[in-house]
Write a protein that binds this DNA or RNA. Structure first.
Lengths: 202, 202, 202, 202
DNA sequence: AATGAATGAGCGTTCATTCAT
DNA sequence: TATGAATGAACGCTCATTCAT
């Protein structure tokens, strides 16, 4: 069976992952250019030179983090929506919101690092990740579009600004949210779903 | 007349301001630590060493930018709300949203730089600006609190998460918005006001 | 045997020492602030950046040089006096003079750098070395005091000015003396002992 | 009369002198290269740029300080010796010692700056002052030589090391002496004369 | 007679990167 | 698999110097 083919992580794989996680955490906290390879190495309890055994450059680490981060939210959201089956579109979008927030605030730092630092990177660092970013945006757009067709969301605002509004509100949480328990994130998700759909008015 | 008494900016004041504006733009685009003094100097068409005639350090430039940026939104928002007189609270908050967005996306880069880079700065760089940040947050909280007391906004979500949701949605625009005309910002503001108050549902 | 247990200096130790010796020579010749790290690096045949693999800062290099320099004279003088056993005090002081001069003018540049540059350093650079300097001064004072108690040196001049006179005459040699052979230093020592004890009068 | 021909110092002359005195003090305390023109300017209560109205360069200031400093001791010593008339050579040398010490420790900082920093200057800065330095050395040598011919000082030590010993002991005082009153310098001079001639032995 | 504004070379230092071991 | 030693380009910053006013 498939399961049996996934071998246990070797020591090398563990080191590689440790470097990635350490780097993601530091990138998220300090940004890409303020983080030094020596800080990453220290966090991963190796020497700076050793990083080059696993990665070609600092940018290669970034690349992998950005990729994993985005892939992770994307897959979480897709899985959540898929799990909703034929629920209402509102329900599906609510689940997408929850999944996006959970990916952003729980799991590893890959996603939050991505959200936080992407905007300030140099062109050539962003470029390879644009296709996936666009695909993720289009995925949400489709969700909203279907909901609108079904008459579940307002038609007087175009899809794009609508999506930006929603995702923006979600992403900004990364600037202030400090993880305490799973409940917190779910509670946050619940409140956010409410505000997104019904607004703040009474 | 009063106007005539405001002296013209001296050459030195112009240079100082040019440095600040150049720096704010670069900080906003690239972040603080990725921006070099030589880049700032080039943008201000002077030599890197000359910056030190006006500022003690790179951090001193940052300090002034952060301060001016936040002060600018804060004053804009206060003025807008004050100008609303005894309007409904919804109207007052709508004006605050518009003022915040205009300050963020138009005028100089001071505000947008502030919003964008603050989160990743080292503790000692954030510290001096915390009091003003808190005051701004409390200002919004008061707005929301009054609106709730007047029965204009929902009571099932606490004020703080509510404020974070709204300001988050506003601030995130800085990540993608590219200025074209004043109309754009005002249009954006109008849509945002709608979604914030009434939500995205039909 | 013990000798065999002293491990050979590693490559790193050699580099470190080479940097220290190069720096000491340059500090002695040009002073601390006139000496650049690039000069030190060139003298040690490495790149300027490499110095930071071994030292935290230019001041850290200075610290170690000052410390080694003073420690070296102090130990030389103590050893010389100890070696004199129960000789007369005049003899002991004569040996101390010789040891001080030899340490200053032969061996490495650590001692001479110390003597030459200490006076012009900023307070915070002098501070850590003051205790040892005081201890060295007190060591000489004791020597003179004992000699006076034994009736071997004049009692009409206080100990401190007396010590300053003697050490001053010794230290000043560093301003003009150029090493040729061991004989020179010993000859110089002999003459100095004579002048110190008997004066220049016939 | 001659007196009337010496006009009062103009404002410019005063400024020039103030710069020189400020610089000499700082050079003496910190060394030449550690002293900045801005420090000198601040001490003279002018702007750094203004120094160039009076001097061509930092080196030009140094040059004048070195020259004035040495000239000052030299003339003081000559005057003192001349004033002794046909006294014994011991007396003449004693007066020279006193004059040298007074010039070094009282009056301005020109002489002490000279003594303290000369040794660490670059070749091209020392060069112009070498002739006068040599002349001063020869003046002392003549004093000692005459004294020896008259049988007043020992013949078993050559003149040069003897002069270096004496001048060294005098010059070193600049490293530790802090001026309080004229008495102090004269008291110091008297003790030094004693030690130089009769030595420290009982 | 003096300054305010600016320069540019060079400083101490950092850091991603290399490579022999 | 990992490191210790070293590099070199570039960083933030300083400073003697210039020059129009």
């Amino acid at each position: 069976m498939a399961k049996q083919e996934a071998s246990l992580p070797t020591k090398a794989e563990k080191s590689r992952n440790l470097i990635l996680h350490s780097a993601a955490k530091l990138f998220r906290e300090q940004g890409f250019s303020a983080t030094t390879l020596r800080q990453i190495a220290a966090a991963a309890r190796i020497e700076a030179g050793s990083i080059y055994y696993y990665f070609d450059s600092k940018e290669a680490i970034l690349d992998e983090i950005l990729d994993r981060g985005l892939r992770h939210v994307f897959e979480s959201v897709k899985a959540a929506v898929k799990g909703a089956g034929q629920a209402t579109y509102r329900r599906r979008i609510e689940l997408a919101i929850e999944a996006h927030l959970v990916a952003l605030l729980e799991s590893s730092d890959f996603t939050s690092a991505n959200i936080r630092i992407y905007g300030q990177l140099q062109e050539h660092l962003k470029k390879p990740h644009r296709p996936l970013r666009r695909a993720y945006a289009r995925y949400w757009d489709k969700l909203f579009l279907d909901a609108r067709k079904a008459g579940e969301i307002r038609a007087d605002i175009e899809i794009e600004p609508l999506r930006i509004f929603v995702i923006g509100a979600l992403n900004w949480t990364v600037e202030w949210f400090r993880l305490d328990s799973k409940d917190d994130v779910l509670k946050l998700a619940r409140r956010t779903q409410l505000m997104v759909f019904d607004g703040i008015k009474k």
